[in-house]
Structure formats: structure tokens, C-alpha cells
Amino acid sequence: MHRTKIKVAEDALDANTTIAHSNRDDFDREHVSVVNLMSAPGAGKTTLLERVLAERGETRVGVLEGDVQGSLDADRLSALHVPVVQLNTDGGFGGECHLDANMVRSALPDLNLSEIDLLVIENVGNLVCPAEFRVGEDAKAMVCSVTEGEDKPLKYPLMFRTCDVVVVNKIDLLPHLDFDLELLLHNIDRVNPEAQVMRTSARTGEGTEEFKDWLLGVGKALV
């Protein structure tokens, strides 16, 4: 019995990346732009989507909703008359905490890609794992609410670094909080100086036009 060393040189997440590319091919073929929307639980992803999708105009939008359990978010968004597919991750190990390329791929047959221009994937509320898994998206956006703490970018740098857009939400609450917005913006700049940062209140609508324009623009750029 002797030992042999074998060179491998393979990315451990190769399998996921391969499936993400297959997803990408399907999206490109049908001219669908895809945004992966992430955040901590309760930051306001669904409320923000409710507001901007209500004003989507001519853009045909579909939503892939990721949650551990239930269809509450999907139900809210269906009320806007957009096709919504709910993906529940509670199939194994008590619930997968993120969407990966394979899970997204499993939901594609339920979406009619030829009838949408923009697919929004609302990921599971989680600041850690979704950042590691590409699913075939064109762009990534995250929502960070002012009730979460100015040090969030320092604690979760990969999530903040991986996103093209950071939406700072719940700004209507600022008068009631000891929150240092400038410090948050400074910390975001330290970990991702390229990120486009927006300030919104999904509740009042303040600032949401900028996010809407960006979101719908990801779709129009490819049409």
C-alpha cells in the first residue's frame, strides 16, 4: 500500500457555478435580465418590491421567491399581478438558508421565461450564505435597513462586496433612532467603494424611484 498525491485544482463550488451558467444560458436565450435581491431577514425586500413593482409600467416582471417555509411573501407579490414562483428550502436539514443555482434551476419550469423581461430572485433573508452562491444573475442588490447597525458592512463584508447596489431602507425611522447614517455610508465605502448606494423608505416611498429605475433598467439594457 502506498500513497499517491493527485493534483485536482478545482473550485469547490464548481458544480454550483456550472449550473449557474446553465441558468444564465436559459435567461440569455429568452432575453431575461435577472436580479438577485438579498438582505438580512426583515430589512424590507418584499415591501420594497411591492412598492416598485406596482409602478413597473410596461416591463414584464417575474419573481422567484425564496423562503425557508410558507408562501406569505409570494402571496403579497402575486397581488401585484406578476407571475410569482415560491421556492421553499425546508426540504432538508431543517431548511437551507440560501438559494443556490440548482434550486433556482428547479423553479425555472414553473416560470414562463418567454413572457418576462426581468426576473427578480428574492433570496432567503440571510447576510451570510446567499453571497457565496451564484445563481445565474446579471446583478446583485441588497437591502440594509437603518435598524440594523452601522457596523453591518464590517461584520458581513462578503455580502456588501458582492452587491452592485446597496439600498439603505427604513429611512423614515431615522428621527427615532440613534443611527449614524454617515458612519454606515463610510463603512460601506470601506468594503465596497464601487457599490451604488440608495436611501429609501419602502413604507413612505421616499427614494424608491431610484431603486425602481435601476431595477427596471437592468431589464431594458438587454432588450
Binding site: M1, H2, R3, T4, K5, I6, K7, V8, A9, E10, D11, A12, L13
Partner: peptide
Amino acid sequence: ELMVESIEVNEEA
């Protein structure tokens, strides 16, 4: 990086 660089295996003599 998240790379599996190499592995070592037991070969039958």
C-alpha cells in the same frame, strides 16, 4: 480561493 488543490489516496501495492 475555495480550491481543492490536491488529494492523497492509498494505492494497492
